[in-house]
């Protein structure tokens, strides 16, 4: 049953310092960015009611910048902005591809990358690209700044390495190199506005049709997003041939532990993980003329 939210206080601080001060006040505030996860969860009772700090207007946390081989994205940057960013499209195209698939235009306009990261759904679409781009998160509080690699940040299903009083300020990714190609993939149960049944990101560092290095991450098939080292290993040093691509795809099964839920069975998710990895490798192979 719907939870009434009429008695929720919403504070609108003018800058990050004020946010941090409020966050440290022990009043149990929650941060409100685009609200596309939080408001739904408050209304349904999935998240207990609390007062909110509306940070959506903080322009200082809304940017995409490039600095010595890295891309820095402010936590409040929306997915529309990410999808349209020339920097992202050029240096992290797999993230731009993922951003394009987040809900609908309305959700892309409101939803932020910071919200996607902190909400920590295993099916969150921005996460597999962040995993293969070795993202680092910048967490700030009155006590200072912490930088953490994305795979250290998630400890288990919705268990995050974030401390009370901390705000996610920025996500930093490595830029894809000249020999690198990649794609994001997503399996939803309809063409638009669907939550992923399986999603993932693949980066191949190629020397002609030979794989120098591979980075593969999958979502919605384990309590957190996972890398697929076995599959990466199969590819390393090999040519993108049919049998290699299938072998690598099958190896992904060693990295995942899907469950049954309302959107699909574990068995189906296993099949989809294999098949999507294959389809993605095949597309990349095709693009470089290897098949």
């Amino acid at each position: 049953m719907e939870v009434p939210l009429h008695d929720v206080d919403v504070l609108v601080p003018k800058d990050v310092t004020e946010v941090l001060r409020l966050l440290s006040s022990r009043r149990g505030f929650k941060l409100l960015a685009g609200g596309t996860d939080l408001l739904v969860q408050l209304r349904s009772g999935a998240v207990p009611k609390s007062d909110l700090i509306d940070i959506s207007g903080l322009r200082e946390l809304r940017y995409v910048k490039r600095s010595n081989g890295h891309i820095a994205i402010g936590a409040l940057t929306t997915f529309s902005e990410i999808a349209e960013s020339e920097i992202v499209k050029r240096y992290a195209p797999i993230l731009a591809e993922a951003a394009e698939t987040i809900g609908s235009v309305q959700i892309m306009n409101k939803g932020t990358i910071g919200g996607n990261i902190i909400n920590a759904s295993p099916a969150a679409d921005s996460l597999p690209p962040l995993y293969v781009l070795d993202a680092e998160l910048k967490l700030i509080s009155l006590n200072g700044t912490r930088i953490m690699g994305i795979s250290d940040f998630y400890k288990g299903y919705k268990m995050l390495e974030i401390r009370p009083g901390e705000l996610l300020a920025e996500v930093k990714l490595r830029a894809m190199g000249a020999g690198e190609v990649g794609h994001f993939f997503k399996h939803g149960l309809r063409q638009g506005d669907a939550i992923s049944v399986v999603n993932g990101a693949v980066i191949l560092d190629l020397d002609g049709d030979k794989v120098r290095n591979a980075a593969i991450a999958l979502g919605a098939v384990a309590p957190t997003v996972v890398r697929a080292p076995e599959a990466e290993k199969v590819l390393k040093g090999k040519k993108l041939r049919e049998d290699v691509m299938w072998e690598a795809s099958r190896a992904v099964l060693k990295s995942i532990s899907p469950i049954d839920d309302v959107r699909g069975s574990a068995a189906y998710r296993r099949e989809m993980s294999v098949n999507y990895l294959y389809m993605t490798l095949w597309r990349l192979a095709k693009e470089v003329g290897a098949v």
Partner: peptide, 20 residues
């Protein structure tokens, strides 16, 4: 998908390497 798999269509694409 399960119907297609039962019908052998998936394995035909997978070849020997991809069969699960």
């Amino acid at each position: 998908y399960w119907l297609l798999k039962e019908g052998g269509l998936v394995d035909r694409l997978r070849g020997n390497e991809g069969r699960i």
